[in-house]
Design a binder for these strands. Structure first.
Lengths: 210, 210
DNA sequence: CAAATATACTTAACACTGTTAAGTTGTCAA
DNA sequence: TTGACAACTTAACAGTGTTAAGTATATTTG
């Protein structure tokens, strides 16, 4: 059915157009300036048409959040060739923070805003695939560090949460302006990296001790 | 001027009534359910009256955010008697996370939401006093740990950011539902504490090594 | 081929939001 | 008594997400 196929493609095209428009607004004007009406204006359809392609705004934001994970994967792609797992761990943290600070809107969506998680709870089979996958890579690396006696052993799950927490925490505090009066803009990234390096050094030292 | 005094008191009373109403809505119904109209309904005044006492909604939220810091101070009040600075550091982290998980709405306001920081930028002499003070206590404790050779030495400022980042990161990920599919509700607190304990142990060990 | 149906989209509306300009009281001082 | 000032309200603006109902257009069926 060539005709049905073409129709299906047109539907997918409009769906993509909605996401593209959302992303344009989102990246250029920030999260709070994305509205259904503005999206509709951009694609030159009525606002209600958007609801024929997405259940609600949360579902749109969830889709953008997935795109964010793809973008982040690009940042960290060339890291997994690094042999030394401690160095890899260090670089993972560094690039994670770099991504967050360079793409604050996406970072917000992926790790701070409630909206995409609300979409997840009502639609999907209720697994946060993107997040799980990213955390999985972190856990693997930590496990490898432990296996090779490069860092102090412990509950991998808890430690992964702690390390993720640390990099996330610094990025989140930075992009939500809690570091503004503490550190000048240009010293922010070096300072955050210094904190991470300090932790990794401490870890490494205690590993060498054993 | 007894009469002018009474008037002044009445003004302050209404101001407090607005904050009380805001807090009630805020704690009971969550951040996104606090609106000027709902506040006005609760205090039985018209919505515009609120604007005679506060510049805008951000200013109300900024005041609530300050109350949050007072509340947090109550949590950590009995900690500063602890002699051993490493143990104190540990307890600070533990109680910080406890506060965050038990008062997610306040935590949101204090460390995640943009609104109170926006109020800060347009009104005050532009110093985040509450945050600075809290971070100050953390830095003192870290400095003390270093002075007593209990933890690896380094840039106190960067390390304070890293440690704060870690506890904040875990709380923020937890209350924004990024740990939901990873850790069951009842295991969340123990797991987070395990992560913190792991870090502190590593720090302590490297300190003893020297 | 004509009638019925399904598809794609729009109009209009509901119930909210923060915020402001203009108007209305009531109280106090000259 | 009049005028000014303070406290408060009404009405409105411009926006938000979302839904019910209506309108063309195209496709399928009798």
């Amino acid at each position: 059915m060539g005709i049905a196929e073409r129709k299906e493609k047109q539907k997918q095209d409009l769906r993509k157009a909605i996401l593209d428009a959302s992303m344009k607004l989102f990246v250029e004007q920030g999260y709070e300036n994305v509205s259904i009406r503005k999206i509709a204006d951009l694609i030159e359809y009525s606002p209600t048409t958007v609801y024929l392609y997405f259940k609600d705004k949360n579902e749109i934001l969830f889709n953008l959040h997935e795109i964010g994970f793809q973008k982040m994967a690009e940042y960290t792609a060339d890291i997994f060739t690094i042999k030394n797992p401690v160095v890899r761990l260090h670089k993972m943290g560094e690039y994670y923070m770099k991504f967050g600070l360079e793409n604050p809107e996406f970072y917000d969506l992926m790790f701070i805003l409630q909206a995409p998680m609300e979409a997840l709870q009502t639609i999907d089979n209720c697994q946060w695939k993107s997040g799980d996958q990213a955390l999985g890579k972190l856990k693997e690396t930590i496990q490898e560090c432990m296996d090779k006696n490069l860092i102090e052993k412990g509950d991998v799950h808890a430690i992964a949460m702690a390390i993720w927490g640390m990099v996330h925490g610094m990025v989140a505090l930075a992009i939500r302006n809690r570091f503004d009066k503490l550190v000048p803009r240009e010293e922010m990234v070096p300072m955050m990296n210094k904190g991470l390096t300090w932790l990794l050094n401490v870890l490494d030292a205690s590993g060498n001790k054993t």
